[in-house]
Nucleic acid binder design. Structure first.
Lengths: 202, 202
DNA sequence: ACCTGAACACCGTTCAAGT
DNA sequence: ACCTGAACACCGTTCAAGT
């Protein structure tokens, strides 16, 4: 990559970060190019689709989420690990208002530049969920696809001005729906998971 | 209202119903006018905003939902009444893909043409929720605002191609989160969880 | 009263022409 | 190699001119 191209790439990305933070993930790309003092074609050359731009903007955060999931698997017991990760997923999508829609769309479109990142994120969630299920602290009738959908729903609520104030509370409600068993949170590694996986609720 | 105006109004509304059913609530209004063989100004005269058009399209369904809520309060016990109404709310928003966003936005904007209908809908839900709470079958730490948000979240999931197939299941999960106490009610259908408490399926 | 559609200010996307 | 911006096909919204 030529030096001037690299410079343009970085500069457009920086400006895009500002503009999309202000106006959301569906901000005008024309406006981004304008504020970056760059031809419209230059923006499209470096980021052929909006998804490509979003992926570049979010890559670091995606990686952090994956790393955090791996870390939580070692450092925390199943229940608080899952809860903490859910919370951070929703906070992550709040980085750019409206970004959850393209993410949800991308997860079933392998051509999308966001596809791989979303699939990886879902896989990390699936692992944390399975671990919680094996420990008998998560309901057994949901899977990683459901979990990703619930995270997306919460992220969407977090993006709507009228529901955002309740997002934390609704997160707790939905976490309650996912998690079962004893309320005790900050325990160490799961002691003895029930053999049958059957957990009484209520 | 003059006869020709009335005719235009009705015709535009009928065409809009077709177009928005096909393309979602954010379809091109220009396209509606075109397919209705009507000047663009005529459309805007009768429906000054997109919300006004949506309100006109949905009025009947809004009324039905309100009537149903009142009916369920008399005919069914608290738990199945709330569950049935939730289900119908989500089905209702599925009438036009993407209509839940303007609805959620409208509920805090009194100027919106959708405002009154959404507030009424939320109030109906609040009544059914309070009734369930007083009967001890719904968790007491949520209110009508939360309920409306949860319905909206489910409606949104129902609109996304990748999550729509799970919408019914996720509705059950969230219904479980809202509802508490004994699963079996003395009458009516409550198709969510099996009597023993935890669903097998694993 | 009501209808019409041109006009204006925006998009996203492409691509011939420049450096 | 890379950049530029005009060109094209779309929007939503308004409003002078027509009937």
């Amino acid at each position: 990559m030529r030096a001037d191209a690299r410079r343009n790439y970085d500069h457009v990305l920086a400006v895009a970060r500002t503009v999309l933070t202000e106006q959301g993930a569906d901000a005008s790309l024309r406006d981004v190019a304008r504020r970056a003092d760059v031809g419209l074609g230059t923006l499209y050359r470096h980021f052929p689709t909006r998804e490509a731009l979003l992926e570049a903007l979010l890559r670091t955060s995606f990686d952090k989420l994956a790393a955090e999931a791996a870390e939580l698997e070692l450092s925390s017991s199943p229940r608080p690990a899952l809860v903490a990760w859910l919370r951070d997923c929703v906070a992550f999508t709040h980085e750019y208002r409206g970004v959850i829609s393209p993410m949800v769309a991308a997860i079933e479109e392998p051509e999308s530049a966001l596809h791989a990142s979303c699939v990886t994120m879902r896989a990390a969630g699936t692992r944390l969920l399975s671990r919680a299920q094996n420990a008998g602290v998560a309901r057994s009738d949901i899977d990683g696809v459901d979990l990703f959908a619930l995270i997306a729903a919460l992220a969407w609520l977090n993006d709507q001005p009228s529901t955002a104030p309740r997002a934390c509370h609704l997160m707790d409600v939905i976490a309650d729906a996912i998690l079962t068993g004893p309320v005790r949170d900050d325990d160490d590694v799961a002691p003895s998971p029930p053999p049958t996986g059957q957990s009484p609720r209520g």
